[in-house]
Amino acid sequence: MAEQKDFTTSYKPTWCPGCGNFGIMPATKKAYAELGLEPHQIAMVFGIGCSSNGSNFYNLYAFHGIHGRPLPVAAGIKLANHELTVIADSGDGDAYGEGVSHFVHTTRTNVDITYLVHDNNLYSLTTGQTSPTSSTGMKTKSAPFGNLDMPFNPIAAAILNGATFVAQGFSSDIPHLTELIKKAIKHRGFSFINILQLCPTFNKLNEFPWYKERVIKLDDEAHDDSDFHKAISQATRTDGKIPLGVFYQIDKPTYGDRLEQLKDKPLVKQSLDNIDISKSLDVYK
């Protein structure tokens, strides 16, 4: 059985002291270990950003791709070899800025992968610009007079567009986050966790005390996570509270379940010997 440390490489983390990623990464590794997963069974696909530099710190099949694109890569891996546990890992810029079309469309496919988004409301690797989840009025290097845009609502977007598991975690609550990640991986279908994350270096607006005043646990509110409308209403609260936990989960056939091509075995295990096309060519005669 693999332990949490078995998912760790020799590469020294390059995150700032106090970075929320120091909460998210151990929660993720702990979830892997507690689920009994071995490093070779996991393909983890990263984009570009502070969080994605984490690709160097995970001992498993890590894929450090380009900005905004981890979801299609992850979907391709899963459809080629559905025996793998496939995780995509992004920041808010990656997921909701550069790659938002993939986010919206992948939720529709219900492909059986897990998407972890580190949401620190800011572009941090590029030293602090407005992100899609920055609040209106927030002052950043790219909006020194305040952000003019409405923040993107990833939780509501995911529920509306067909994600079958939607949750929110917090980088400062590792035990809670670990349990969420375990649930998300166990869920069959597209599972998504928006993970609220501190950025002590650049985000001076959404700091720990700010979150502490606002976060609440859905479990404490007896939330029915099978109810679509209640999930949407939790995702669009107007009382300033930020719910943590599972907003919505539902069982539906995954993308792979609906592919006859995968019934027998994963694509990667199918033989390429003696593929005979001769009869099919008769239509051209």
């Binding site: 299609p72 890569v73 979907a75 391709g76 079309s101 993939h102 919206v104």
Partner: peptide, 22 residues
């Protein structure tokens, strides 16, 4: 598996993922 993706960026990234998986 033939997938009509949301755009060409997704198309090529999905194909890379599948190729990486073997």
């Amino acid at each position: 598996v033939v997938k009509h993706t949301e755009d060409e960026i997704s198309a090529i990234n999905t194909a890379v993922g599948a190729g990486y998986a073997g």
